[in-house]
Amino acid sequence: MSKKVSRRQFMSYTLMGVGGFMASGMLMPMVRFAIDPVLQKKDEGDYILTPQKFDELTEMPVRVDFTIKDRKDAWYKSDVSNTAWVYREGDTVIALSPVCKHLGCTVNWGGDENHSDQFFCPCHAGRYMKNGENVKGTPPLGPLDEFDVKVEDGFVYLGKTKPNTLV
């Protein structure tokens, strides 16, 4: 006998049930918010495939053109073509941005006959070493930016630009 639930027990079970339900209603979102950074998906789509094969790279920088598809600028969607100077150093691939740090012209490798192993900016004769370091005494005040690079299936992928890490 005595399987009967007393009035007191009934009350405490009900209150615990309802209270627990309400507490979990409050705690669950809090826990979800707290662990959210861990659950964030990594954005792998930032790397863009270029037509450049890894095997064909040498120590000589080559121009690589690539296109960022469907870049959104507010409501305006467009394909943006972009360029990088890419070369190999041992097994690492180095990609430099062609944008001059002086006023934003486009620099070329070996554009100056007297300094064929440097990057040259035709606007104000700015020069950079192969690793992007600005040559002192020419207008640019900082080194060329660098692209994030990865190699997959033999092709070079380029990501975002970052401040030069080689100099």
């Binding site: 001059c100 002086h102 006023l103 934003g104 012209c105 486009t106 900016c121 035709p122 606007c123 104000h124």
Partner: peptide, 10 residues
């Protein structure tokens, strides 16, 4: 536009 990107600084 292409000329502008090439010679932006001048």
């Amino acid at each position: 536009m292409f000329i502008e990107t090439q010679f932006k600084g001048r």
